[in-house]
């Protein structure tokens, strides 16, 4: 019980300590308004080009992708921000279990991403005056939760890269653009060249976006378990890889002395 409590306390405190967007004005601007404006742009565009066909699915997919991007940036801050503040070395030298720690730090960002995506989706539905089947809602939340978890896993890996390079913003933006491009949030995946589709299979959110479209547009729930399972496994793999990276960084710092964790 102690451990569970500690897990969530750490999650909350790190979120506040490292993310710093808790200032309501900034939070709304960065976490809500900015993705909403992107959502609006893509929704209007897609609505125009496809003459409204499959709109609700595209809005859902965009809400998922665009609102999650901030979570991905947020999760990168778990490492980069800690290092920037000079606390990373203290954290690494403490006896706490590192995998548990980084997982607990990630949880807040997963929930945050879920929250903003839902807001984004509601906003999109209101603007375009559409509604969805009530039985889809719970399923959608589940799908999104897993997809965001998986995206956060990749975000954590990218955060580790930032221990090697100072250009966190650059890498973060490349990641964000790639997710937007590869997930197929704004077009059927079939349009993409085959090799890109194969590549997209290893990217988080691809399956989440596909499921979102299937659920919202076709009312097709049949692939949920298969695809969601894959997405979850993908997320777990990302987290494991990121832990290995953290371990490797620690090794470089301790033994080789080629990396400064401060």
């Amino acid at each position: 019980m102690q451990a569970v409590q500690r897990f969530f306390r750490q999650s909350l405190l790190s979120y506040r300590a490292l993310f710093g967007w808790l200032d309501p004005k900034v939070y709304i601007l960065v976490m809500v308004l900015s993705p909403l404006s992107q959502l609006l742009f893509f929704s209007v565009l897609v609505n125009y080009v496809y003459s409204g066909e499959g709109l609700v699915g595209y809005i859902g997919a965009n809400a998922l992708i665009l609102c999650v991007l901030n979570s991905v940036f947020g999760i990168m801050s778990i490492i980069t921000s800690d290092r920037y503040m000079g606390t990373f070395q203290h954290v690494m030298a403490s006896p706490v279990n590192k995998a548990g720690l980084f997982l607990s730090r990630s949880i807040a960002h997963v929930l945050n991403g879920l929250f903003t995506s839902i807001i984004g989706f509601i906003f999109g539905m209101m603007i375009f005056q559409i509604s969805i089947a009530p039985d889809a809602i719970l399923l959608l939340v589940g799908v999104w939760m897993v997809s965001i978890f998986s995206a956060c896993g990749l975000g954590l890996i990218i955060g580790c890269f930032c221990l090697w390079t100072p250009s966190m913003n650059l890498i973060g933006n490349i990641l964000a653009s790639s997710l937007l491009l590869l997930s197929g949030a704004n077009y059927p995946q079939s349009i993409m060249p085959v090799w890109l589709v194969h590549f997209a299979d290893f990217i988080p959110l691809t399956r989440g976006v596909e499921l979102t479209k299937q659920i919202l547009n076709e009312g097709n729930y049949s692939n949920v378990f298969a695809l969601l399972g894959e997405e979850f496994v993908l997320g777990v793999c990302f987290f494991i890889i990121s832990f290995l990276f953290i371990k490797y960084a620690e090794y470089l710092s301790r033994v080789r002395g080629t990396m400064d964790l401060d």
């Binding site: 506040r16 300590a17 490292l18 710093g20 808790l22 503040m85 000079g86 606390t87 070395q89 401060d262």
Partner: peptide
């Protein structure tokens, strides 16, 4: 470590 860092300022 001396200095102002190594704390969570927020």
């Amino acid at each position: 470590l001396g200095g102002e860092r190594n704390l969570y300022w927020r």
